[in-house]
Design a protein around this nucleic acid. Structure first.
Lengths: 181, 181
DNA sequence: GATATCCTGTCCGAATCTGAACACTTGGCT
DNA sequence: AGCCAAGTGTTCAGATTCGGACAGGATATC
């Protein structure tokens, strides 16, 4: 799909880094690498990334994945719209579930199939873009979508939707015609 | 925490059903059971559930979990605010990831520890409640929170926040004082 | 069929909101 | 200092929106 994504890969194993670079080369505008979580924030500040691909296990002995979860928390603190894809070689179901519940948009197992990695990264970048465009909504658009939701939820009943929205029926009419609903 | 949750359990194995009933008995207001996905919608319509606990593998031979994913889709179609917790005995990481990406709020492995099941169900019910209260927001409140987000994102710069919201600076001032910001 | 209830769509004077304009403060730059 | 760009807070005539009221349609109940 898109060749315009900027990806940050955080991974300690040089072989994996190289392999990720190769896999992502054809489909991304730019791939930056980091060997560890050190210097994560400056890297995020330096480039406008669309996805962070994050290893969960920097220390071989430490297979709990807490390093990855911690890194993800730091990414989210820096920019809540930026999506994180986690990767691990040792993942169990419990860890995967925990990671997604904490906000990762995908979780992939090493070794990966290149095609799958590319698809995951590309989908995650798309989610980032959606989040960012949702953040930029004008007040009008926020109001419009709130009204649409209320109307849907009340099955088109204008009176009860107006009541739920806390405005008069006449006011809801005006807004509906304003937004073409 | 709460003893007021209503849970729907969809599970074909009678032993598992019984064991779920026992585990949930102390902490929930009401537990209903269904042996299969047949009659799902009527059951959802009859009671106002807070969580659906859904087995992924009704057919032994069928371990892909598609029955569970399908059931979850039906629950979400019926009520998008109602959370689903999936459970399985055969789950791999890939299936768990797929389930959460499709909107399950948790994914637990059989056999479970009762304590963990209760915690998962209770947390899911809390998420349902949060979603439902977010849906009921008055238009004023929607506007207020959109303004708060815009102000935060623009680091308190009123001019640029107003620009992003598509209103004049004066209008943003008025609203800020209206909402006490 | 008559009655009641709920919803719809529209009207209008009063209340509210609008944004350009103005005066002022702050911070950077030569 | 002097200058410039950008932000702040407020004012006011004019535009817009407010919601109660009204008439009509649809559906249910007796």
């Amino acid at each position: 799909m898109s060749t315009q994504d900027c990806v940050l890969v955080v991974e300690d194993d040089p072989d994996v880094r190289r392999s990720a670079r190769v896999a992502l080369a054809y489909d991304t505008a730019r791939v930056e690498m980091l060997e560890s979580l050190e210097g994560l924030e400056p890297a995020l500040a330096a480039t406008a990334f669309d996805v962070v691909l994050l290893d969960m296990n920097f220390v071989i002995a430490e297979r709990s994945g807490s390093a990855g979860l911690n890194g993800m928390a730091r990414v989210r603190a820096f920019d809540p719209t930026l999506t994180v894809v986690l990767m691990t070689a040792y993942g169990g179901v419990t860890l995967a579930v925990e990671a997604l519940k904490q906000g990762a948009v995908d979780f992939i197992l090493k070794p990966w199939r290149n095609e799958k990695l590319v698809a995951a990264v590309s989908a995650a970048a798309q989610i980032t873009r959606t989040r960012r465009s949702a953040e930029t909504l004008q007040l009008d658009a926020v109001e419009k979508s709130a009204i649409e939701r209320a109307l849907t939820r009340h099955h088109g009943n204008i009176s009860s939707a107006a009541g739920a929205l806390g405005i008069s029926r006449a006011a809801l009419y005006r807004r509906m015609s304003k937004y073409g609903l």
